[in-house]
């Protein structure tokens, strides 16, 4: 026994002892999916596919993620679905208290600022989501607000978020904001002037965007849920997408 000890207990024996290997629990997951919001003159739409994935597995073909949260507001948080669900839930709760405290509807601009606070207070352990808020502003014009995971936000005419955002966004730049489009009359010297799109045009754009994204992105597909907000309230439409 003594001999063994002598052999083992050398000057270097402690070197072999290293820190324990740490398998850290990963609190995040990518659940795929894509969302898209476009604002029109007197309406706004917020659409999302209904597929929920993890890795190569399709968990559900119909798990809607665009929510009518009340006060003519549409909200979707896409990315890590548990955070997305939680964010919407907390927002709805905050909205309820806003009504108790102020006895009025929440303006879309106020909702946007509130969401910034909700995201930023978790700056060091963020909600891993791309968030889009849709509604009508004080003048009744369509409004889209988009957020990054830690609360930076801006109002835009349109925004795509989630897995296929980078596939859809350039298409939207071209088709909604007429980027790289020229007035044919001007022989390529003048930009095509901006104009509001009609609701029919917007819905067709959204459907085209999602069918194309479904072709190119494995995490997008199964179904398309479109929520439309106008001064008359919120209505929703559903279109099937490819399930492959």
């Amino acid at each position: 026994m003594q001999a063994q000890n002598t052999l083992l207990n050398t000057e270097y024996s402690t070197d072999a002892q290293t820190e324990p290997i740490e398998h850290r629990f990963n609190p995040y997951q990518d659940n795929g999916g894509t969302i898209l919001g476009i604002a029109g003159e007197d309406f706004a739409v917020l659409a999302g596919d209904t597929r929920q994935t993890v890795g190569y597995s399709i968990d559900s073909r119909y798990e809607p993620k665009v929510h009518d949260v009340g006060d003519n507001l549409l909200l979707s948080a896409n990315g890590f679905s548990a955070d997305g669900v939680q964010l919407v839930k907390v927002f709805q709760n905050q909205l309820k208290w806003y009504h108790f405290d102020n006895n009025k509807e929440m303006a879309v601009s106020s909702a946007a600022r509130l969401i910034q606070h909700m995201l930023y207070r978790k700056r060091m352990f963020p909600y891993y989501v791309a968030t889009i808020l849709a509604g009508l502003d004080e003048e009744g014009k369509g409004a889209i607000y988009s957020f990054d995971p830690v609360g930076s936000y801006e109002r835009e005419q349109c925004r795509a978020g989630g897995a296929a955002a980078s596939l859809i966004m350039p298409f939207l730049d071209n088709q909604v904001n007429f980027k790289n489009q020229m007035d044919p009359e001007s022989n390529g010297t003048k930009r095509r002037p901006l104009k509001y799109l009609s609701l029919e045009e917007v819905i067709q754009l959204v459907r085209d965007a999602f069918t194309s994204a479904t072709e190119r992105h494995i995490e997008v597909g199964d179904g398309l849920q479109i929520l439309i907000v106008t001064k008359d309230g919120v209505r929703s439409e559903y279109f099937p997408l490819k399930k492959d």
Binding site: D59, S60, E63
Partner: peptide, 12 residues
Amino acid sequence: KYVNLLGVSYSS
């Protein structure tokens, strides 16, 4: 409906 250790849930 499903729910797991991350709080991820879905129905199908």
